[in-house]
Design a binder for these strands. Sequence first.
DNA 1: GATGAACGTTAGCGCCACTACCGAAGCTAC
DNA 2: GTAGCTTCGGTAGTGGCGCTAACGTTCATC
Lengths: 176, 176
Amino acid sequence: MTKADETDAAPGPATAAWEPPARLRSLPSRMIAHAAMHAERLVNEELAGAGARKWHYAALVALQDKGPASQSELSGRTGIYRSDMVAVVNELAAAGHVERAPDPADRRRNVISLTARGRRHLERLDGLVAAAQEELLAPLGPGEREQLSGLLARLLDHHAARPQGRRPAAGRGPAT
Amino acid sequence: MTKADETDAAPGPATAAWEPPARLRSLPSRMIAHAAMHAERLVNEELAGAGARKWHYAALVALQDKGPASQSELSGRTGIYRSDMVAVVNELAAAGHVERAPDPADRRRNVISLTARGRRHLERLDGLVAAAQEELLAPLGPGEREQLSGLLARLLDHHAARPQGRRPAAGRGPAT
DNA sequence: GATGAACGTTAGCGCCACTACCGAAGCTAC
DNA sequence: GTAGCTTCGGTAGTGGCGCTAACGTTCATC
C-alpha cells in the first residue's frame, strides 16, 4: 500500500490521535474563530473573481446606503481604519468606482462618492457576497439562520457597548 | 462646541452617518468575523496574564488529552501548521512545560510530552480560557449558548467535509 | 493669533494563516 | 541493496489585517 488511506473513509485508531480533542473542538471562541475563517475564505474566493476584496465591498456599500462621505466618516461606517482607508480609496478611485474630490467647505476633507460604474460594480459584488453567505450557511435552515444571526447580534451588541472608554476611535470591527 | 458629542448618548442625525449601514451590520460573515475578533481579544487578554498565547494553550490541551505526540501529529490535533509548530514547541520547551525528545523508533520524529510543570501551567490556563468564554458569552443564557454551539458545530462539520481534495494537509482551522 | 483638534497620509509593528523549500531519515519496489 | 518515493523537523518568507505613531495641513476656539 504505497498511497492508500488517502481518501480512506474508515478512521482507524491511528487517525484518532490526529484529531483535535473534544475540549478544543467545543470551545466557543475556537468554534467562532474557525467559522470566521471559513466565512472569510468563502467571501474572499467569491470577491476575488471580481478583483475585489472585502474592504472594497464594505466601502462601496457604505457609500451607496448612506451617501458620499469623508474618508474618516467612511472609516466609521465600515470599521476600516483611517490609515488603511487611504489605500482602499486609492484602489477604488483607480478603478473608477469612486470619486475623490476635495471638500470645498473643509479643505482638510476629501469627499468620496460612488460613480455610476461603482454602482454597477457593487451590484455584481452584492451577488457574489450573497452567494458566499449562502455557501456559508448552507447546512442551516431559514429558522436556524435567523437564530444564529440573532444570537450573534446579541453578542455583538453586548461587546460593542463594553470597550473601555474608547469611543471615537473610528475603526471598530472587521470589514466584512 | 469644541469637544462635545464625544460621550454623547443621543445619536443625532450627524452620528447616523458614521454608523455602519444595516446591510453590513446584518451580514452573517461579517457578524461572525466581528464576533471572532472579540473572542480572540478576550482570550488573548486572559492568556497574556500568564505569558501565554492561544497556540500554547491548544498544544498543551492536545498533549494532555491525547498523550505525547510527534510535532506533526500535534499539528493535526491543534490546527497549527507544522512550520509554526516549531516555534510553539520551542517556547513551551524553553518554559519547561513540554519535553522534546528524539523518537527512538523513528529518528525523524521528536516526541513531545507534557511535563509536570506544563500540567500545572495548563491548569491555570484552563481557568483563564474558561473566564474568557464566560465573558464572551455573557449576554447569553445556558440554552442560548448551547444553541449557538450547536449551530456553529453544524457549520463547521459541513465545511470540514467540503475542502476540495486537500485532505492530509495537517493544518486546518485556528488554534483557539 | 496662538492652541488644540481633526483630517489625510505614510510608515511600521505584530499576529497569523499559508507556501515553498531544504536535508535527513524512513519506507517501498524493483 | 539500492533507487525513488514520502515523511519529518526546520527555516524563510509572503500577504492580509488590525492597530499605533507621527507629520503636515487645515479648521475651530478662545
